[in-house]
Amino acid sequence: MFIAMVKGTVTATRKHPSMAGARLLIVQPIDPISSQPSGFPQVAADVLGAAAGMRVLVVSDGRGVQDMLKADNRCPVRLGIMALIDPPAV
């Protein structure tokens, strides 16, 4: 799993049916220590209500995403948001 910053949302009417109930969020992987961007932004499925500016935990395995979406094994999605990371304590 990796940590990413939510940078936006994607809308897609025509898509694989397994993604019907999910929001599609643009996530920028970041270095967990420095918070600097690391690699290219990608799109992950979300059912937790993540929003732009939040740090999230992203799993990159289809099996986990299928469980999250309550989808069968025909679901092709690989990235799913598994947790919203708490803001630093003040």
Binding site: K7, G8, T9, V10, T11, A12, T13, R14, K15, H16, M19, L24, I26, P41, A52, G62, N73, R74, C75, P76, V77, R78
Partner: peptide, 25 residues
Amino acid sequence: EAANPFDPPLPIDACIVAIVDDYQY
């Protein structure tokens, strides 16, 4: 995962899964 939509399975390692209408970034 790109092979998942296909039944029986196919040797596919990349697949278009959505057409983008719009995005905010």
